[in-house]
Design a protein around this nucleic acid. Structure first.
Lengths: 207, 207, 207, 207
DNA sequence: CATGAATGAGGATTCATTCAT
DNA sequence: GATGAATGAATCCTCATTCAT
């Protein structure tokens, strides 16, 4: 978690407050996707959220706090998604599906533009960097464990020595595909799926 | 190429002008890496280049033109690097080496932060988007051809049907690694190399 | 009308907003009179209006929009004034009076410096040029009709063939006097009045 | 004369220097007509004059000095032109002809845009204001004398009491027409000529 | 709670002018 | 004499943030 809840100063914890925060974050997400963290102005976010700019500051201390909250949210979504993937067997098909923007609502997918925005921002902001590192650690550990688990236990039986490396490669492919999604959203699905199978079959084949 | 040379209006073509442009681009690259395209101010770039802000405009029409020039430069570097990789046999080792920021000077490597910055920007700027697409087309075509070439001709003998898909996967891994480099520059090299070998051996093994 | 009201984007239509716009226009008018459209800076206008520079942009999209609004205002004032003149009989006396800067407040007179500024600007800006042309057409048409009307109907009974020409001459004299006012604001009123009578008596005498 | 010759510091008096000054003034005139005093940059003027910006400063101390020189030149041209007019008998036809931009070269006509630019500038710059006043005094005196001269001496025999007033009106019409020329350069010549005759016949008819 | 007007620092860009060559 | 690179102040405009109502 990047942004401390700090209900004292902002959230109030009431249902109302939660709803307002969600409203703002939803608007912010849209604006950030459309224009990037920097180019999206608080005024635009307010307008999108159909509230006054001043009101936003009742729920978030600054624009940066909103950015951090959005990053948290996106990482959470990604965590959930990759958790699902690693549990299921059909990894290639599922990853390919995660590429498809029509398969889920905006709030349930790691947005490709936001992923790039976040990653770029992490280069400069240590707080964001650390959030991403923690995300990484969680996911890679989880993946490595899944890979290392024996076939009898529903795992892939990959030797421990290789599991960490393959988890790393999985992340690279997952994130490389996010980059690609941002750049080439209409990439041929057939090509993608067969390519993924071609590679992942090796990465994840029970050994 | 995004930015036409257009010596008419800016560069003057003189040795001096070329040196100044290089100076500016070098300063801009530093600033963009440190702060991002948007947060880097012309004043900062000028200061880094040790010249007055006004002077920059003798060599570039706008900040955006500088951004485009930097993107051109980075894509050119990436093209050259991937060209080398695809010619050589030791793909995994080379890719891993390309991760190593100490192996080459700043100007001879695709900067990871800039790569993210560029990719994010391409989401909104059609000119950048098109430059990236053209980069993609070139590289993927080249890779696919190298993969499809018969072993006798120094290729990998991958069936045509699979070559395109593997080229795509190669790009995902390459770019996924750039993302990782930005996030985790001190990633364990041993782990990385062995993981790459593990995957690429399958992707590029002569068949 | 040059500048559409466009309350959507700027004015808000509230009483407050109207007052602020007026405040800004009033300050801008002063600054433009003192220094010209180009030399008057937004900072100066803001200072004159006793507000921050940024606030101006809540009410006007750009400096140019302010210029256009001022031009609109000035043309409107001129139209009203010439309307009065053409209705009354004592044209010479009235024109001379319109020269007198003490007879009316700043907002009810076509400012001589602004008239020059506007006219000069119209040379380059097609929007302003067209506003001036429309002003011309209105006024000259109105004058020509007044001149052509029969004496029984309160007109001057000037033959149609001559009415257009005399309306043109009237405009030349009116505008020539604006030039003079800018240059020689303390011109001898007696001289002016008798000179105007001498000429206009011929232009407008009922025939 | 606004701008003191001051050969010491600038002109050098040599034929070369004179030619260079003329070159610069000619370029400046073009630029000022096209873009106005303020918007015309020294760089553009230099380019138009086909010389380097720095060189201009060998012949003029500042941009303002160029503006003043141009104003001098324009007033000189106007003086000459009105001198001709007042000597000839066919005043109306001649004034109308002076409207016609094709009748003379650019350097021999008072440019309408420059006239507006000058007049506007005179509002703020006392030096320019005084130059215009001196111009006025000369011209109006000359005109008044011509009008007052007896018919036997080639004059118009206008009583002294009226001569000053008519000279004033003549100036208004002349300058009013300059304003019109800037605004409506393609004004119907027939209309203009007949209108001028209609008025001037009264102003200048020998009495 | 909510508004939206207000602030003012900061950003990109231009341009008259200078000066080393 | 001549060049044109270099300067840096000044300009327009934007936007995160605050606060009176």
């Amino acid at each position: 978690m990047i942004s401390a809840p700090d209900e004292q100063a902002t959230g109030k914890g009431s249902a109302r407050a939660t709803a307002q925060r969600k409203r703002i974050l939803c608007a912010a997400r849209k604006c950030f996707v459309d224009r990037g963290f920097h180019a999206a102005s608080m005024a635009t976010i307010a307008q999108t959220a159909e509230m006054s700019p001043g009101l936003i500051y009742r729920y978030f201390r600054s624009k940066n706090e909103i950015i951090l909250a959005i990053i948290d949210e996106q990482l959470e979504v990604a965590r959930a998604r990759i958790g699902e993937l690693s549990d299921a067997g059909e990894l290639a098909a599922l990853i390919a599906a995660s590429f498809d923007s029509t398969s889920r609502g905006d709030e349930e997918r790691l947005s490709a533009p936001l992923f790039l925005e976040m990653s770029a921002e992490a280069t400069r902001d240590p707080q964001i960097a650390s959030a991403l590192r923690s995300f990484d650690a969680t996911i890679r550990g989880e993946l490595a464990r899944a890979l290392a688990r024996s076939r009898e236990e529903g795992g892939y039986g990959v030797p421990n020595a290789r599991a960490m490396g393959r988890a790393l490669m999985f992340m690279c492919i997952f994130e490389g595909l996010k980059v690609r999604e941002a750049r080439e959203p209409h990439l041929d699905r057939k090509l993608l799926e067969s390519a993924l199978n071609d590679v992942l079959v090796n990465l994840f084949r029970p050994q």
